[in-house]
């Protein structure tokens, strides 16, 4: 039987009175790399936080591989926006990555050799091994972003939510990270990525979700990522793109 990796039904989230994400329903199949695209303030971060229950929702159901979100916590990985923490915290890169193992450790148990080993492995995957003992405020923005990614990898999840993992990351690193995400996908994991750079959407993502308060479109990228739907999502603000540019963009 087909089972969606993630199924969201009638999700509505509001900070104050007006909903920021309204009556959103969609399904995501397993083993895909999915780009979440939409203008600033479209509610992309809010949608992810709502799904992860980091902020209260007004209504809606979220199921992960057919079970309720609460039961599946250990199989969820999360990369928050980098600005969400104070990086001048007395800890080093390795320590932050080890936090990815805390959910599996449970209460009272302390991280030990196994966790350290796993964390080093994940640091290696993002090319940050030589920074393992560096205090985290002494890392560049892109390096901090990679630490967060390594922490999510350490979670060994089945479904990943990443909020703008490429912000402040150089082109070479971005390619390396996308390679990593593709490997995850090959292993049957599902990865949802909030992404702003329209020029790489076709190259990176199997599926695309266009979001602006509600889900405008979701599906295989070649069906969804077309000028008409994009204009609709960005409220005509993409008009500045000339035909030649958008032709290039959407090729």
């Amino acid at each position: 039987m087909y089972q969606a990796a993630l199924k969201v039904e009638n999700l509505t989230i509001a900070y104050h009175k007006k909903p920021v994400v309204e009556d959103v329903s969609f399904e995501v199949p397993e083993g895909n790399l999915i780009g979440i695209i939409g203008p600033n303030g479209a509610g992309k971060s809010t949608l992810i936080k709502g799904i992860l229950e980091l902020i209260p929702k007004l209504s809606g159901e979220v199921t992960i591989s057919g079970s309720s979100y609460k039961l599946m916590r250990k199989s969820i990985g999360y990369v928050p926006q980098r600005e969400s923490v104070d990086w001048d915290f007395p800890t080093n890169a390795l320590d932050v990555v080890m936090m990815g193992r805390y959910g599996h450790l449970g209460w009272l148990k302390r991280p030990g050799k196994a966790e350290r080993h796993k964390a080093m492995e994940c640091l290696d995957k993002v090319g940050m091994v030589e920074y393992a003992n560096r205090q985290i405020s002494q890392l560049s923005g892109g390096q901090q972003q990679r630490i967060f990614l390594a922490r999510a990898l350490a979670q060994e999840a089945d479904i990943y939510f990443m909020d703008e993992p490429f912000v402040g990351v150089d082109a070479a690193t971005e390619k390396a990270i996308i390679q990593l995400l593709m490997e995850l996908k090959e292993k049957g994991k599902t990865v949802l990525v909030v992404h702003h750079d329209l020029s790489t959407v076709k190259e990176y993502f199997d599926w695309t979700m266009l979001l602006n308060k509600k889900v405008m479109k979701i599906g295989p990228t070649k069906e969804v990522f077309i000028p008409e739907y994009l204009q609709e999502t960005y409220g005509g603000r993409l008009a500045i793109l000339s035909d030649a540019q958008s032709g290039l963009l959407l090729k």
Partner: peptide, 11 residues
């Protein structure tokens, strides 16, 4: 103390 959002995420 470091990342309450992530803490909440892992339950």
């Amino acid at each position: 103390s470091f990342d309450p959002g992530f803490a909440k995420g892992i339950g």
